[in-house]
Nucleic acid binder design. Sequence first.
DNA 1: TCCTTCTGTTGACATAGATCAAGGTATTGT
DNA 2: ACAATACCTTGATCTATGTCAACAGAAGGA
Lengths: 245, 245
Amino acid sequence: MESNVHKISCPDCRLSDLCLPYGLQQNEVKQLATIVKNKRPTQTDEYLYLQGDAGQNLYAVKSGSFRSFISDANGNEQTIGFYLPGELMGLDALQHGFFTCSIVALETSMVCELPLSRLNELCAEIPGLQNQMLRILGKEIASDHDKILLLGHRSAKERVATFLLMLSRRYASLGFSSTEFNLSMRRQDIANFLGLTIETVSRQFTELSKDGVITVKQRSIQINDMASLKATVKPCLPDQLSFIA
Amino acid sequence: MESNVHKISCPDCRLSDLCLPYGLQQNEVKQLATIVKNKRPTQTDEYLYLQGDAGQNLYAVKSGSFRSFISDANGNEQTIGFYLPGELMGLDALQHGFFTCSIVALETSMVCELPLSRLNELCAEIPGLQNQMLRILGKEIASDHDKILLLGHRSAKERVATFLLMLSRRYASLGFSSTEFNLSMRRQDIANFLGLTIETVSRQFTELSKDGVITVKQRSIQINDMASLKATVKPCLPDQLSFIA
DNA sequence: TCCTTCTGTTGACATAGATCAAGGTATTGT
DNA sequence: ACAATACCTTGATCTATGTCAACAGAAGGA
């Protein structure tokens, strides 16, 4: 039943290996589950939290997807990243207890709410949980470094190709197809994330299509020639941009 | 004596409020000090570690400065950031135990080496230390987000101005002048960090000089009109780009 | 079903910043 | 002190991407 989706708890969650419970023992996962609050579904374009809000919680994506962004005084936005199931949002609030970016749902989505105070207590009790927190934080930092590399030194075509490979890899680790998927974000979101305009993104999609590398139909993407796509983003060592591996 | 600089330990270190000991009690700082290994000075252009190395340690800058970068198959580099005294290097290795970037000294520098295994043990014992680790990690993430914003949506002039403000603020928090300082990095490093060419960086320095906003003489920088410099990087909310505050 | 709105595509043109090239100024080593 | 090298600046030109504009297809509401 649909209503049960809300209530699936960590020990039964198919995402547990991608999320905080990874590496924990069964009873430890149960302990973790006791502090998790399930929230009602978040609708498309609904904000999970806003930049500047007090950050008392972390949020794990249970289903759907989200976009994080920083906005400036003029209302201009810079998209910082996209979050898929199993990924943790709100880590930037660990610094001072305030979120430095806003999060909006790209589709109807579910999150698990993790109160930071309880999580801290639990980290002290469960060494494996503390380690997993550090691993996740390290991953976030490494992934942000990849984004800096992407924005600093890559052409429009490389950026678009990298973006697709990044998604492909994350869908694969969720057990979905790595070659066929639907984008949950608009062209505008992709463009903004990649530091490009929507026109440029659109043109790159068109070019990759004409070359037969991908098939694009609105939000649906099919990767026909993974090797070519990867070759587009060379010259990067495979294990550098973690998402190309 | 010069040789004593090596041996200053956390309880006596003037950087302790910027570094890991912040917020700890005196006896806790002493405990932390027992796991810190002092290393011999790192010379200019010497590598602290290389991308791909096993990361068993974190490193805190005691004196001098460092540059971190990712290199690709062609030997091209993307500078990820610069590290000043009190800042922690190597956090990206928390993910899988391998460094995802390389670190090189920009001048003769000193670091404190913190074995991760010992640090983890200590975090379990000292709740304040675990909190401080999380704060530092959150800060790193927030600062990386600022870099993404910078590279994604800012003009050359805004990037250069932001870079100067970023340094100004960090020097100020170290107790140095916020308006007069020497750059420890070459133009090439600045350009690469900002996703620009050295020619463009040079031209922006020249323009800011002609406008009387700064005085540049090789590596020495003087900020004559802080308000103008900040106005250059508007439109960003002051508390968004944390380094402009 | 039709109309409106939102989203994405394509083309023509403009421009910020890259590239190419030359010369100037510190710094280093002998 | 001098030569050699590394670093930085400036000018001329080129190009990838942004901007402006028009249109086309999908989605949603009445």
